[in-house]
Design a protein around this nucleic acid. Structure first.
Lengths: 151, 151
DNA sequence: GATGAAAAATCTGTGAC
DNA sequence: GTCACAGATTTTTCATC
């Protein structure tokens, strides 16, 4: 369901995100038409989840970035779903990951400044359903996000 | 340094990553040429850090994803830099974030399976310099990553 | 079912204003 | 900032393997 040519396309796409389809085709040793069709197929099958712009939140006025580890109340079996759905609707929550273990969820929250963060935290985070415990870390920087990878 | 038109371009770029420059121009109420120049400027100034494909690692054979919180040895003042540089060179580390507080760094590590993870953990993570403590969480899923945002 | 070649459609970027 | 245009890029068509 994923041959060597697909892998080569993906590897180059990650290593050089600004490469054009024609570039990728050349490096994978196929024609631009074939590359175009393969990449389309990879998107439809979900291997490529999307092609997104990565924003420097600080540069657009969001100076505060916080990583929250949330532990949920285990008494309600639907707590997980209810919580996730509610968290998804908070615009300042820019990432949600779920885990296996004591910590259930990690939320990445951005805010314009500390006052704004306090506001979001009190009004939009603490009000999320089924929270048992929260632990917060202030983020300083993102150094690396998925570059050259061994696909 | 960032006017309403820029913000509108960014907002639409995040909300609809597949939109073409021409689409974004229309929605921002400017000509495609102006949009092209603005987006170029946003990239050069670092507001747009890049445009990357997001991969479903499970779909390409990386079944295991682990989030590691690393605390560094504080006796060496250069520990931070040395550690980060070494961590950056590990291909299976797909994300590095630094924090303010007890935990210094979060690493996101992917592996093909548990055996592979053990190998990476022992040979490429534990061998990183200046580690004082590590705490691991197994990731189950990523639910949301930066969609519609209040820019 | 997938490919390459070539044409068509579309998009991006530049220069003039 | 717009407009017009040249150049590049993506995508479709079609014949072929």
């Amino acid at each position: 369901m994923l041959d060597d040519t697909d892998r080569r396309l993906l590897r180059n796409l990650l290593a050089d995100p600004d490469a054009t389809g024609t570039d990728l085709a050349q490096r994978a040793g196929i024609s631009p038409a074939a590359a175009s069709r393969r990449i389309e197929r990879l998107r439809e099958s979900g291997v490529i989840r999307g092609i997104h712009a990565e924003i420097d939140w600080r540069a657009v006025g969001y100076e505060v970035e916080v990583s929250l580890r949330v532990t949920l109340d285990k008494t309600d079996p639907r707590a997980f779903d209810t919580f996730l759905e509610a968290a998804r609707s908070v615009p300042e929550v820019i990432e949600i990951q779920t885990f296996l273990g004591r910590v259930d969820v990690r939320l990445e929250v951005i805010a314009r400044d500390m006052g704004h963060y306090q506001e979001i935290y009190r009004e939009r985070i603490l009000t999320l359903p089924h929270i048992a415990d929260i632990e917060a870390l202030m983020q300083v920087a993102v150094i690396k996000s998925a570059q050259g990878l061994p696909i």
